[in-house]
Design a protein around this nucleic acid. Structure first.
Lengths: 374, 374
DNA sequence: GTGAAAGCGCTAACAC
DNA sequence: GTGTTAGCGCTTTCAC
């Protein structure tokens, strides 16, 4: 095993190449290539010798060069906004892990604003990504067509495709089912005046959660007493609380389209209206953000299984690699209820539904519906 | 402008190549290349014609092929753990934006555990990344040497280099200075019995914050009354509170190495000991996590400027690209105090230091020290 | 300012 | 099984 092969003295950034290994092991460069290709036909002995030589000279195959002629880069583009939002942070982490398990790497694009998505997507495509996962942004027509032309599969997570984005696969949490769950819980607990706090009107997450909630209430012969918009933010929730809880027919239960608004609403309910939660008011959120578990809030909420969401997304990209994928395929991940103390519980008819220490969860089957276009 | 050039009918994933554009524009492939290279010499008129042709056939340069002979991929590897931790989430977001602004893309590696870093780094290197930013993991000797051999600059964010990692550049928040700030605040507020709640002992973040705090107290003639370890977690903080606040000489001020522990401690202080904050106990955290701002906590804390941290990291990678970078360089980003209501304020000698609505901040100059090795 | 030719490091046919 | 020969799509001397 020689040692001083790596650097030729001068500062020229010279890489150890397969030719070096070939020379060292006394084989051809093709043999070296095969030794590093899982399913290739090499004599076990040769392979061993090659790997040893590679190790000696410090060789690692150049993934860039490799992908130039395999036409598979092993890179998956990930477009994401607001990583600071805990939900997207967890999603990104799960995506990263799911990809790595499959030998892929995420090339991530942080979208400063939703409109920038197209531009970012184009840049990703120039890196010959094997597929793209888009979280938190809608897809324009042009880019979808472009991906289709490049035979690059694209998966939207927790979004509906835009008008023209029929080419994309869709993976999302069952927001409708989640809203339904909440309706069942609140109705069973005997609440009469239900309110919904929407996030941003245009988003599918907010509208779907509302749809599930309203239809769930209807199933119990109930309707919505009030409705406000909180733009998915803490302050939005706090402000909405002022309007919502100041009404003559004050709601006794509020379902918020996400946790952040729910926290704002809880704070305002206590500070401004002196309400006790859940005695005077039940509050339910969506997402199961870390803050929701804090002792001062103990927010009952709907959790999305981020890991499963990520797995499904990655599986979808892989499945569509190479295949035609003419029609939009979609996959719904069920949500589950996380029971804490911010919402009253139904009277226990049979047994104890409620574990005060950890959290009790109930699964919900996917509602099975998911429109392909908004 | 012809139209149907893109797909040759069969499903063969054929890319639009520079040759197509060359043909379309009646020039050579070299000319096309130059038209897409910022500083190249092309006649303005030719370039215009080429760009138009490219647009017509839907051409974008293949970044992979390009980097094969420029030896610059435009990709920066980012190794990061626990994205779910809000601090790292914000850091990653800031890094992504900073990189994009400079025309670079982050290839991210999510480290399941700190030990996995080396393996991930090797994979990143095989993608010919132009540099690596490592957040939240220590660096082994082997990999540092490998990076050095490959002339790949590596920057550690908020970490100290391991024993052998002298090749890495270091960028970090001024944890020592941050601890110092807290000591000044608490001392000025008249507290007498100070406690420190450490995170994980082995981490530089925890030890540096402690060091700054202790030396800051010393400057006021004070010493630490008590000290506990909370492993950076909410439960850890809660448990530590039981030990810390049950003492005969109960501390009247606690500085926690991060916010999460501070929240746990606050909850336990109120629920278990019936303490009022800040009347009976002042609590200060570190990080300025979103939860810290919630009405129930209003945690006074030390904020790191994540954006600046990211900018510095990216700048460092770029600077070291191609240069020798034999000695470890480091850069400290100052922290600032975010005053809320969880800690008593010093009696206002001159004017109002405290804005109850938003938050008042005070800058601190970097302490100027940062050991290269732990 | 532009084109021709020679690679970047690797893998994929095809012979042997 | 293994070596030889062509490229992948691009940039880059080097002539002109």
């Amino acid at each position: 095993m020689d040692d001083e092969i790596v650097e030729p003295g001068t500062g020229g950034r010279r890489w150890v190449t397969s030719a070096d290994v070939a020379r060292e092991a006394g084989v051809s460069r093709a043999a070296v290539s095969r030794a590093f290709t899982p399913g290739a036909s090499v004599a076990p002995e040769t392979r061993r010798r090659i790997l040893a030589a590679a190790d000696a000279v410090g060789y690692r195959p150049n993934a860039i060069a490799r992908s130039l002629n395999t036409r598979r880069s092993g890179i998956i583009g990930v477009v994401i906004t607001e990583i600071a939002n805990p939900f997207y942070a967890r999603l990104l982490e799960a995506l990263g892990i799911a990809l790595q398990e499959r030998g892929l790497m995420p090339l991530v694009s942080v979208a400063p604003d939703p409109e920038a998505t197209d531009e970012l997507l184009v840049r990703l495509l120039s890196y010959q990504v094997d597929g793209v996962v888009v979280a938190s942004a809608t897809l324009s027509s042009g880019i979808a067509a472009r991906c289709a032309a490049a035979r690059t599969p694209i998966v939207l997570v927790d979004r509906r495709a835009g008008e023209h984005g029929r080419e994309a696969a869709l993976v999302g949490a069952d927001n409708v089912g989640g809203g339904h769950l909440v309706a069942d819980l609140l109705a069973a607990a005997g609440h009469r005046r239900h309110a919904f706090l929407a996030g941003i009107e245009a988003t599918s997450t907010s509208t779907e959660r509302e749809r599930g909630f309203v239809s769930g209430l209807a199933a119990h012969g109930l309707t919505l007493t009030a409705r406000e918009v909180g733009r998915f933010s803490y302050v939005g929730g706090r402000d909405a609380a002022l309007r919502l809880l100041g009404r003559a027919d004050r709601p006794d239960a509020v379902f918020c389209a996400n946790d952040e608004m729910a926290l704002g609403l809880m704070d305002a309910a206590r500070a401004t209206f002196g309400l006790r939660i859940p005695q005077d008011l039940s509050v339910v959120g969506f997402d199961d953000t870390p803050s929701a578990a804090l002792a001062s809030y103990r927010l009952t909420t709907v959790a999305q299984d981020v890991t499963e969401l990520a797995e499904a997304a990655v599986t979808a990209v892989q499945e569509h690699t190479g295949s035609v994928a003419a029609s939009a395929r979609y996959r719904l991940i069920p949500c589950r209820l996380v029971l804490r103390e911010s919402a009253r519980l139904p009277p226990p008819p049979a047994s104890t539904l409620h574990d005060p220490n950890a959290m009790t969860t109930a699964a919900v089957p996917p509602s099975g519906r998911m429109p392909a276009a908004g």
